[in-house]
Amino acid sequence: MENVEVKELSHHALLSYLRSRYISENIGRLYCKEIHYELRKRHYFAIAFENKTGGYEVRNPYYKGCIKGKDISVIRYNKDIIQNHVCVFEGFMDFLSYQELHRKGDYHVCIDSPTDFLVMNSVSNLKKCLVELERYTAIHCYLDNDLAGRKTVETIAGLCGNRVTDHSECYYNYKDLNDYLRGKRR
């Protein structure tokens, strides 16, 4: 990829894509950027979600991938203090969905405590995730209701014990948290 440019999220097509996923522009702009790049002399653009090592998870209606290296993303409630609670998500769209649900006061799913957030950006980042989770006394998992999500929660629970709560049962009729937000049952 060449001519990579990261800027504030403002493109109408990307904001429309977020709205189609029931994510407000305010939440999207708070946590995401807009990225433009060239690949094989063609111009592309997408929503960009930064990870720990300065890479970006990128997404638009036609593409889901990564630029500059895959890693986890950690969002601190307070940049100077690690909270007792952390919420874990497979991807950033579920993290954004959680933010929308919390804003709407959905405490059936969301927790009502100051919390940090960890976005795995892929279940293949589990090892990196586990290192970060050692810092927390309460781990709240919001992973997908599929085999990979269940196995990942089982692994985290097996290593972290009773500090782990699996919240996927709160949206068991849905593939993931974004489908729950959109009311899109399986």
Rank of each mutant, 00 (worst) to 15 (best):
35 I>G: 00
65 G>D: 02
24 S>N: 09
13 A>C: 12
100 E>K: 06
48 A>S: 09
69 G>W: 04
56 Y>C: 03
33 K>Y: 13
44 Y>V: 00
37 Y>N: 00
151 K>P: 09
133 L>R: 05
22 Y>V: 11
18 L>Y: 02
35 I>Y: 00
147 L>I: 14
75 I>F: 15
91 G>R: 00
66 C>W: 10
100 E>R: 10
81 I>M: 14
65 G>L: 01
23 I>G: 07
55 G>R: 03
61 P>E: 08
20 S>M: 09
39 L>K: 13
20 S>C: 03
152 T>C: 04
108 H>R: 14
23 I>M: 03
94 D>R: 02
51 N>G: 08
45 F>T: 06
18 L>N: 03
16 S>Y: 11
118 L>E: 09
147 L>Q: 14
65 G>S: 06
146 D>N: 14
28 G>K: 03
110 C>A: 07
25 E>M: 04
46 A>W: 07
95 F>H: 06
72 I>H: 09
68 K>L: 14
115 T>P: 02
83 Q>G: 03
129 C>Q: 04
106 D>H: 00
68 K>T: 08
123 V>K: 07
151 K>E: 14
137 T>P: 03
67 I>N: 02
149 G>F: 10
60 N>P: 09
114 P>A: 12
113 S>F: 15
94 D>P: 11
75 I>H: 12
128 K>H: 13
115 T>A: 14
92 F>G: 00
64 K>W: 02
146 D>I: 07
129 C>H: 06
40 R>G: 11
52 K>G: 06
135 R>L: 14
76 R>N: 14
120 M>I: 06
92 F>K: 06
57 E>H: 09
36 H>A: 13
143 L>E: 05
103 R>T: 11
90 E>Y: 01
133 L>S: 01
73 S>R: 09
141 C>A: 08
15 L>N: 01
25 E>H: 12
151 K>C: 07
73 S>H: 08
47 I>G: 02
141 C>M: 01
52 K>T: 13
93 M>P: 02
45 F>Q: 12
149 G>P: 11
36 H>M: 04
31 Y>N: 04
141 C>R: 05
46 A>R: 05
43 H>L: 13
64 K>F: 05
113 S>Y: 15
49 F>A: 05
140 H>A: 03
121 N>K: 00
100 E>G: 10
12 H>G: 01
128 K>Q: 15
153 V>Q: 01
